[in-house]
């Protein structure tokens, strides 16, 4: 059995002269919450749509739980909340969920049970007989989430699932995502809200200009830190001898900024400097936030 929930190889897609996706490789492990990030126009939505079979790839291969993306077998495994969360306004909430249950192939009894459960989950039980046209934006997003989870799919693709929600709604969605992970469901989360991604994701991939610029375990990616050191005489020679290139040139007052892969790396650098007889007056460790990483990577590829 393919261990990847989603596997993309050499994925490309162009719209006329615009190259939206330029050779992406992606591996989304089963049972994890995977964050897919990138600035506006980076190609995120195109990749999501290719995974769902809404857009055909120009080149490359994508499989969803071992099935070719877009095939009926692949689509049976996916629950999807679209970014636009626009649904048929003339339908009642429970009727809308029942319609999607029928499309997903659920039998009448299962639909009846799941519709009630899902309305309960997203806090819309009291509005089950109301037309969607009377719903607020946040309620639309909630009912969209209920629709995505209705058929208990092993893979849930959430495109900006909290963009219209208030802080309480966002917390609820985070809790739902954590519960999904606990039941072994893979969640592919496309979000601009980096703090949210930081709180729930195990792995992330950052895309910019149609290419993956960073991917991997979130904690490992964030472990890379910047260290600011104030050093005495001979620092530059000692750093060069150790093969350490400062991020920035020597700042005033003997200050240097280095990149460290983690705590061990910081200890190794300071031990080397001390061993070389360089006086260490100050060490400041700056932890990377996902936002810093995101902005740095986006800036780096834009240059």
């Amino acid at each position: 059995m393919d261990q990847a929930a989603i596997r993309a190889t050499g994925l490309r897609k162009s719209f006329g002269d615009t190259h939206a996706v330029r050779g992406i490789d992606l591996d989304v492990p089963r049972g994890e919450v995977f964050g897919f990030l990138g600035p506006n126009g980076a190609g995120k939505s195109t990749v999501v749509k290719i995974i769902l079979g809404l857009v055909q790839a120009g080149a490359g291969e994508v499989t969803v739980l071992g099935h070719p993306a877009g095939s009926l077998a692949a689509r049976r495994q996916i629950g999807f909340l679209p970014e636009t969360f626009r649904f048929h306004q003339w339908m009642h909430a429970s009727e809308f969920l029942d319609f999607h249950g029928r499309l997903a192939g659920l039998d009448r009894d299962t639909r009846g049970k799941r519709v009630i459960e899902m309305l309960e989950l997203v806090g819309l039980s009291h509005r089950r007989r109301d037309r969607l046209a009377t719903f607020s934006k946040g309620m639309h997003q909630r009912i969209g989430l209920a629709q995505a989870l209705l058929a208990e799919p092993p893979l849930v693709v959430l495109d900006e699932p909290t963009s219209a929600l208030d802080p309480i709604g966002r917390r609820d969605v985070r809790d739902i995502i954590r519960d999904l992970r606990a039941t072994g469901t893979t969640v592919f989360l496309n979000s601009h809200l980096l703090s949210e991604v930081e709180q729930v994701c195990d792995q992330v991939a950052i895309i910019n200009r149609g290419e993956i610029v960073a991917a991997g375990d979130l904690r490992e990616l964030l472990a890379a830190r910047e260290v600011e050191l104030r050093l005495g005489e001979g620092a530059e020679a000692a750093l060069r001898a150790a093969g350490l290139e400062p991020v920035s040139a020597q700042l005033a007052d003997g200050r240097y900024i280095l990149t460290a892969a983690g705590d061990e790396d910081i200890a190794r650098i300071t031990a080397h400097l001390a061993g070389a007889g360089v006086a260490i007056y100050e060490v400041q460790v700056r932890s990377n936030s996902l936002e810093d990483l995101f902005v740095d990577l986006a800036d780096a590829t834009d240059q």
């Binding site: 769902l52 689509r75 049976r76 679209p82 636009t84 629709q147």
Partner: peptide, 14 residues
Amino acid sequence: DQGTMHAVAARPVR
């Protein structure tokens, strides 16, 4: 254009 097709076409329906 309205976006209502996305959720439907992503379902296992030809």
